[in-house]
């Protein structure tokens, strides 16, 4: 379809269509990028400039706001907590989720349908709501207000994705490869470590990063379950009414950075992951 349009002659009415098409693409790109650019301007400007009016439309490359952010009481701790929770979530959701993904892709077993339903249910439920009763449960077990406790909730959020994504990744590895390894002297375990694992590693990394971002971005459960050990999102949310603009924008910017890296890192897998996770 696109090739036909490229070859169109100069007087072809399709040329106008082509122009509209390109304009629309550029416009939609701008729609995504311009708000991000505004945030960048605010982040790389001094606190005075951020609160001034009217705004300049180019950043002044002043690190004042970011320095203020770093120096703000509790902010660096919150940042550290965010990273910690996300890292634990990443490790837990993959180590717990990947075996199930493997089982779904390789075995037919009784209860498989029920199990898939359980996984899909979790994805269809407003999960952060579960933070409420968990808050009570955690107080009883001493997990309240801990990084690990929150990571458990975030893992619940990330697990359905981990299972479905690894399921689709494992399904992409022909079972013949494993069978060949078995006939060549491998046990189930060595066939996995020598053949399946090396092939799946990039995809696993992508889904691990996905789990990281799910946790990194989560606001509600983090706000409900932490008091002293706030994560960055919870901290920013709590201080929305009181904190100055430049603090909000610098915080917002720090929140956005991993997202940019994440989408870049997993771009190859994004569509493959969803293509099958659909079913």
């Amino acid at each position: 379809m696109s090739e036909a349009t490229v070859d169109a002659g100069p007087d072809d009415p399709r040329k106008a269509g082509k122009f509209v098409y390109i304009a629309a693409v550029v416009l939609l790109c701008a729609w995504v990028l311009v708000p991000l650019y505004f945030l960048l301007i605010n982040t790389l400007s001094s606190p005075e400039a951020v609160n001034a009016f009217p705004k300049r439309f180019v950043p002044e490359f002043d690190l004042g706001s970011l320095t203020f952010f770093a120096g703000f009481e509790g902010m660096l701790v919150a940042l550290k907590n965010s990273i910690l929770v996300a890292a634990i979530t990443m490790v837990m959701s993959i180590t717990i989720g990947a075996p199930a993904g493997y089982a779904l892709s390789r075995f037919d077993f009784k209860g498989k349908g029920l199990f898939r339903l359980l996984i899909l249910l979790t994805r269809a439920f407003p999960l952060p709501l579960l933070a409420l009763p968990l808050a009570v449960m955690f107080i009883r077990t001493g997990l309240d207000d801990t990084v690990f406790g929150l990571a458990l909730v975030h893992t619940t959020l990330a697990i359905p994705f981990a299972v479905l994504i690894t399921f689709s990744l494992f399904s992409g590895i022909p079972i013949e490869l494993e069978e060949a390894a078995w006939t060549l002297g491998c046990t189930r375990l060595t066939a996995f470590t020598k053949v399946v694992f090396p092939l799946i590693l990039p995809g696993i990394t992508a889904s691990a990063i996905f789990a990281f971002v799910i946790s990194w971005n989560e606001v509600f459960a983090a706000a409900v379950l932490t008091i002293e050990n706030r994560t960055l999102t919870a901290f920013l949310l709590q201080n929305l009414d009181t904190s100055p603009l430049h603090l909000k924008f610098a915080g917002g910017f720090i929140l956005v950075v991993p997202a940019l890296i994440f989408i870049f890192a997993v771009r190859k897998y994004l569509f493959a992951m969803w293509g099958i996770a659909n079913r």
Partner: peptide
């Protein structure tokens, strides 16, 4: 065993 799709390990 020799498989229909060869099963040559890609890595």
């Amino acid at each position: 065993m020799v498989f229909q799709n060869y099963a040559v390990f890609p890595h």
